[in-house]
Design a protein around this nucleic acid. Structure first.
Lengths: 207, 207
DNA sequence: AACTGTGAAGAGTTTCACAGCG
DNA sequence: CGCTGTGAAACTCTTCACAGTT
């Protein structure tokens, strides 16, 4: 919509977390920076992309700034999420309370394993993968979370995109190839450990 | 050690994944770039920080390049990992095979809940949190994975660092404050969804 | 001929430093 | 005075383009 730089978009949710921890009515860029462990000039630059919501000499109103970040991130409307692949990780995500906070509703759990279909995970029944397309349309699912094994992930991504999903959060340890206009975020747990390993060797600090 | 740029360090594990998918003996930067969905000049720049391991006119030897990336990332030695907080996510990680691949051994599962202590998760017994310090020393644990609720995460991080851990992978939805010399990587599942939300609104592509 | 390795240009990001407002 | 908002400087990262090697 407006064109917030990607680096800033990545940090706005971090500020939301820190704002939630504030018990004061206003917060300065310095204090928010301490909480978020970033530089205070960066906080001010980041927030300036949203507009001028601070008060000079005072700081930012916590409630108002929270609202403005949520608005800029598109968190004022509710998003329906599908989780595909109900193994250990998929089940954990389905049951994770933090997922359903802040306007995300898990409205579909899918798996191809007949033994899992019909079982209840996090208060919701697991459905057959064949129900995916229909559910995307009927329930307005807009984000697909892929927690299948690597071998199944591409096929699932193909079906998600064919059904009209334009945003995928991929936990499968593989790179998904999707059409233009579909955005994929990759979260690879073993990649994260490998990066930890690098910084264990060299004593320097990470980013 | 050598000083590989952070952006490159973040991508090297991605190349490892793509190299594992190669069935040919050699691979060109162009092909590796296709697999990893990045620009081929970026692949060549990234790999050039490791040394000159390509052959002009041919490409990179898959096995040799894999080894060189593993060496640069510190993956040729084994790292012992502790998981603290054996809830849904901690259990999923403990059971996740991909975690134990590539030289990571989960050698400690800790929780403060007496009901969980002594139960078996992913073939390993959950221990009392009070055993943490002793285990770090005796088993040479070097990476701490924090999967506790946000409220317990800072205390756990304090204990991990006091025990000598210098690398933390934090899944708790909070910012950890640690002494200099300790590196923390934050993986926040709900942050990831929020970023998806932003790119759903604006039709533009993410990073 | 095919492909790497890399200087140099370009884009994006961070940080500084301070003018300007409350 | 304290703190925001922002130009400008500094730095990092990406991409181009091509010389150089096999």
């Amino acid at each position: 919509m407006k064109g917030i730089p990607p680096a800033t978009v990545n940090r706005l949710p971090l500020y939301l977390r820190c704002l939630a921890e504030c018990d004061t009515q206003t917060v300065s860029s310095e204090r928010l920076a301490d909480l978020a462990k970033v530089n205070s000039a960066k906080v001010r630059k980041d927030l300036s992309f949203l507009g001028s919501y601070g008060t000079r000499g005072v700081g930012y109103d916590v409630a108002h700034l929270t609202y403005q970040i949520e608005r800029a991130m598109g968190l004022t409307k509710d998003w329906a999420v599908a989780i595909v692949g109900i193994g250990n990780l998929g089940s954990a995500l389905a049951a994770y309370g933090g997922f359903s906070e802040k306007g995300f509703a898990v409205l579909g759990l899918f798996d191809s394993d007949p033994a899992k279909i019909g079982t209840s995970v996090g208060g919701r029944k697991v459905e057959a993968l064949s129900k995916l397309e229909d559910a995307v349309k009927k329930r307005g699912l807009s984000i697909g979370v892929v927690t299948t094994p690597a071998s199944a992930a591409q096929e699932v991504a193909d079906r998600l995109t064919a059904a009209g999903i334009t945003s995928i959060l991929n936990f499968a340890p593989t790179v998904l190839h999707v059409p233009d206009g579909v955005s994929v975020r990759r979260v690879d747990l073993s990649t994260e450990l490998q990066i930890c390993s690098y910084y264990l060797n060299s004593v320097s600090a990470p980013t």
